[in-house]
Amino acid sequence: MTTRRVFGAVLVLVAAGLAVAATFLSAYAVQVRVQGRTLRYEATSWVTERDDFRGALMLGPIEFGEPAVGAALVMALATVLAFRMPAARVGSLLGAGLLTGVAWSAVASVQGTVQKVRELESPVPFDVEQGDGVTLLIVAAGVGVVAAVLHQELPRRTAEVPADGVVIHQIEGDESETPPYGFPVIVEPQEPKKEPHEESDPQEQKSD
């Protein structure tokens, strides 16, 4: 396993950890100041952490905890498994993709909720904010995708040969090229009429 892939594997695990942590941080919060008092609603992706409105605003947690933990599990399991079974590497990319989808959905849902609460016609303005959990989930998804790509087996450039075109082979270790006017002759030829060697004639090589 190359250094790149080990680095990718470690980063995938970090991203999975960040994603799980993000689900336990605040997803969104609604706050209002009435007669000097501050009323606040705050929820993670699992439960309502604080509700001073006692349900009057009909708000609830935006549930992205289960899918996010699911995606993190796929990433982590595939990465650990890939140390023994290289084919499992695709699982880390699949998990990172899942996490990206979950993060995008979470952002869209939270933004939608924030927008709806802001549009409420209320005598006192609501202060609505997107929580740190959503921001961290976006970071985790970004890190996860980059890490998962690093974790994959990238192709060697020499492996791609056009199927019908001219195939050029280079013999390994022989980097010397023939100078434009050939190599200086060390031994004078005794009989100039002798046939040149087969390998030096490109015409004959083609007819083979």
Partner: peptide
Amino acid sequence: SGTVAKTVALAAAGALAGVVLTYWVQVRH
């Protein structure tokens, strides 16, 4: 671009599954 196509295919299909899964979980909730 075989490798690029395969990588994009898996990441995008995964992300689509993530979006649909989250949507489904939210509706059930």
